[in-house]
Amino acid sequence: MISVLIVDDDPAVRRLVSIHLNEAGFQTFQAENGQEALNLLQIKKCDAAIVDVMMPQMDGFELTKAIRRDYDLPIILLTAKSALSDKESGFRSGTDDYLVKPFEPQELIFRLNALLRRYNKQQSSNIQIGKTIIDTKSYEVQIGESSMLLPLKEFELLSFLSTYPRQTFSRTQLIDSVWGRDFDGDERTVDVHIKRLRERFKNLRPGFEILTVRGVGYKLEEKE
C-alpha cells in the first residue's frame, strides 16, 4: 500500500486529508510540525509527502529542502496564499506541485497520483503484479513464459491500475489519468476497456484480478 506523510499544524486539515486519502486506498502518517515529520521519515517508509507551508518553527519551504536532502519522493505543498512569489519559493525549495487552500480533495488525489506515476516511471520501466510483469518501455506484458502486446489504451489502463494495487478509482479518475481531461468520450469507455482486459487474462492466471467496486469504479488486487 502506498504511504503518504501529511504535515500540517492544523489537526482538522490533517484529519480531512487523511480521511480522503484513506478512502482512496492510501495509508497515511501524520505530523504536526517539520521536526516530527523528519523523525517519522526515519522510521516509516513514505512514498509521498503533503506539506503545509505556514507552520511554526520550520515552515513548509524549509521542511521541503530538508526532505530533498535525504529522500527521493514527490512533495505537494499546501498554502493559503496564491501569490506568484510564494509559488516560486515553493518550487525553489524542491516541491513537485503546489495546491492553494481551500482545495477539492479529489484534485489533491489527482495530483498525487500523477506525481506517483511520474516517479514510478523514473525509477523503473517494469511493474510487477502477481505473476505478471508489465514493461512500460516495450509495452509488453509477460506472464510466465507467455507474453503479449496490448492495444495502447488497454496497456495504459492496466499499467495505471497495477501501479496502485488495492486502490479504488472512479471512472472519471481513470479517464483523466489514462485518456486525459480533454477526452470527448463518456465513462462507458472505461467499462469497455475493463471488459476487454478481463477477457484477455481470464484463462492465463496472471496473479491479479480487476474488481468492480459497486457505485464507485474499479480496483486491481493481487490474487493467489
Rank of each mutant, 00 (worst) to 15 (best):
126 N>V: 14
75 I>Y: 03
108 L>Y: 06
105 P>A: 05
178 V>E: 05
147 S>T: 08
34 G>A: 10
3 S>L: 01
149 L>E: 13
152 L>G: 03
45 K>P: 03
115 L>Q: 11
103 F>E: 09
21 L>I: 08
125 S>Y: 07
80 A>K: 03
45 K>Y: 12
19 I>A: 14
166 R>H: 15
29 F>Y: 15
79 T>E: 02
153 K>D: 08
24 A>I: 02
116 L>M: 14
126 N>I: 14
148 M>T: 13
151 P>V: 08
170 S>C: 03
151 P>M: 09
169 F>S: 00
162 S>P: 04
9 D>S: 08
7 V>D: 00
148 M>G: 03
139 Y>V: 02
2 I>V: 09
187 E>P: 01
76 I>K: 01
138 S>M: 05
135 D>I: 07
178 V>L: 07
68 R>T: 07
85 S>T: 11
100 V>S: 04
161 L>P: 00
216 V>S: 05
75 I>M: 08
26 F>T: 06
188 R>K: 10
23 E>C: 06
36 E>R: 14
48 A>N: 05
71 Y>H: 13
179 W>D: 05
222 E>K: 15
139 Y>M: 09
107 E>F: 10
14 R>V: 10
123 Q>E: 12
193 H>R: 11
196 R>S: 11
16 L>Y: 09
141 V>K: 00
119 Y>W: 07
6 I>Q: 01
123 Q>P: 06
20 H>A: 11
62 E>V: 13
1 M>C: 07
132 T>L: 02
128 Q>W: 08
113 N>M: 07
134 I>F: 04
55 M>P: 01
108 L>K: 05
101 K>T: 08
104 E>V: 14
28 T>Q: 07
113 N>Y: 11
110 F>E: 14
178 V>C: 06
191 D>A: 05
79 T>Q: 01
127 I>S: 04
50 I>N: 02
173 Q>W: 00
160 F>Y: 09
181 R>W: 13
149 L>Q: 14
95 T>D: 02
207 G>T: 09
97 D>I: 05
90 G>R: 00
223 K>C: 10
68 R>W: 09
40 L>C: 12
42 Q>I: 08
151 P>I: 07
200 R>S: 10
51 V>H: 01
39 N>P: 00
142 Q>V: 10
146 S>N: 09
41 L>N: 06
88 E>Y: 12
60 G>P: 03
33 N>P: 01
120 N>C: 13
177 S>N: 12
211 L>P: 00
103 F>P: 08
79 T>H: 00
29 F>N: 14
22 N>R: 15
165 P>S: 07
80 A>C: 02
88 E>N: 11
153 K>C: 06
70 D>H: 14
